[in-house]
């Protein structure tokens, strides 16, 4: 392959710049590898399985509502949620296996698979869509990550990670993560469109240590294009590495 001279020159320049800057950064911050950080986050947050109770507060235009639920999660492919309150939602169950999602409503005694356009509906009126919950691929599988800097956020020093999609079927082309340098807990995340437009932002707080892990108990999730105060998700009780019987993750358990 022929490469003409001016082109060769620019390429050389670029390489020099990259080398210069990266070494500069390395020496200044002792910056770790971004994938390493993501891995650390995984270590910290994921577990074989967990059972937790949570409350979700949705700030609507007119009023706020709180919905509580109990969830069983195994790995990152299986989850089962049962809504506990308010009375209207009580008994509604949701099962997620791989990339399939079913909802059971006790009043109709029907189990409906949520697919296609229905995935884009909001979960219980929140700023979260079913689809947002569904994507369970590891960030390291779908995104190339680089550390782009460091910043003080909410009184903690954080790494800023920039994630760029490396597969073409993800919902968000790029993401930005603010990760606590000591605890390896993300404190803020922003989701961007292909054009670079900010679409959604979540802010994580109430980081506590549970069973030796650092865990953010509160997440405020907001659709940035829409007006409103977003959705607040609070974990009220969480237990890791529990015995969850297999039948929980079957469609039959929805009707129980």
């Amino acid at each position: 392959m022929m490469i003409n001279l001016p082109e060769m020159k620019t390429i050389t320049k670029k390489i020099i710049i990259i080398i210069l800057f990266s070494s500069f950064a390395w020496f200044t911050y002792g910056q770790p590898d971004a994938n390493g950080i993501l891995h650390q986050i995984d270590e910290n947050l994921s577990s074989e399985n967990r059972i937790f109770e949570s409350s979700m507060t949705i700030h609507g235009r007119r009023a706020s509502r709180t919905i509580t639920s109990r969830s069983y999660v195994e790995g990152d492919k299986k989850s089962f949620t049962e809504y506990l309150s308010p009375p209207r939602e009580q008994g509604t169950k949701m099962l997620k296996l791989e990339n399939q999602l079913w909802i059971y409503s006790p009043s109709t005694d029907r189990t409906i698979q949520i697919s296609g356009h229905m995935l884009r509906q909001s979960v219980m009126g929140s700023d979260l869509s079913y689809e947002d919950m569904m994507d369970d691929r590891k960030l390291t599988e779908t995104y190339n990550a680089v550390v782009s800097g460091s910043e003080e956020f909410d009184g903690r020093t954080t790494w800023i990670l920039e994630l760029t999609a490396r597969v073409d079927d993800v919902a968000y082309a790029t993401r930005k993560l603010w990760v606590d340098k000591e605890r390896f807990v993300p404190l803020k995340e922003e989701l961007f469109a292909k054009s670079g437009q900010l679409l959604k932002r979540s802010v994580l707080s109430d980081v506590v240590q549970i069973e030796g892990r650092w865990f953010p108990k509160t997440i405020v999730y907001k659709d940035m294009l829409k007006q409103g105060d977003g959705t607040e998700f609070k974990v009220t009780d969480i237990k890791f590495n529990q015995d969850i019987p297999d039948y929980i993750f079957t469609k039959a358990s929805l009707k129980m």
């Binding site: 079927d169 919902a171 082309a173 989701l191 679409l199």
Partner: peptide
Amino acid sequence: VTLRWRDARGTFDAT
């Protein structure tokens, strides 16, 4: 005005 859509592969885009 902001317009949001998804491309053929489902990735969000906005402009």
